[in-house]
């Protein structure tokens, strides 16, 4: 990097931090897990965009692109994951944003989790997953990206 680069200032505010979008897809209102995760991620030093409940796949994909996030974290308890998550992935493709990683948490049976992963979901977390493990997996997904990890 050249000597007139702004990096020389070492300015923390001008250096990219990992940004994560947390959303609840579908119609269920159980946002406890999503909120706990969003808050924990903030405390780990991530920048978290929280868009709350009743989000459609398209709304989430567009928000993620506008925010230029690294990761989308989806929480779902309604059982509609096999319909809604593939739709989300499809929308990301259409927006030329397949590089945004998708992780999913919620009530998701084991077989469904395997199918979701084969469709391009990076990680599926059950409700009992410790936050530490989630952060560890997120950091793995961020490896190679030019962002500060936690």
């Amino acid at each position: 990097m050249s000597s007139n680069s702004l990096e020389i200032v070492g300015a923390p505010g001008l250096k990219r931090r990992a940004k994560i979008l947390v959303a609840k897809i579908g119609l269920d209102g159980h946002d406890r897990g999503a909120k706990v995760i969003a808050r924990a991620l903030k405390e780990y030093g991530f920048e978290v965009v929280y868009i709350g409940i009743r989000q459609t796949p398209e709304m989430i994909a567009k928000a993620a692109v506008q925010e230029d996030v690294d990761i989308i974290g989806i929480s779902i308890h309604s059982g509609a994951h096999m319909v809604l998550i593939p739709e989300l992935i499809e929308h990301l493709k259409r927006l030329n944003a397949e590089d945004i990683k998708v992780i999913v948490g919620g009530i998701i049976p084991w077989e469904d989790a395997q199918r979701l992963k084969s469709m391009g979901v990076s990680e599926v977390f059950t409700p009992d997953t410790p936050i530490e493990v989630i952060v560890e997996k997120i950091n793995k997904l961020l490896a190679g990206k030019n962002v500060e990890q936690k």
Partner: peptide
Amino acid sequence: PLAAGEVGVT
């Protein structure tokens, strides 16, 4: 359309 995926599920 918002009901897609959720009809009769829970």
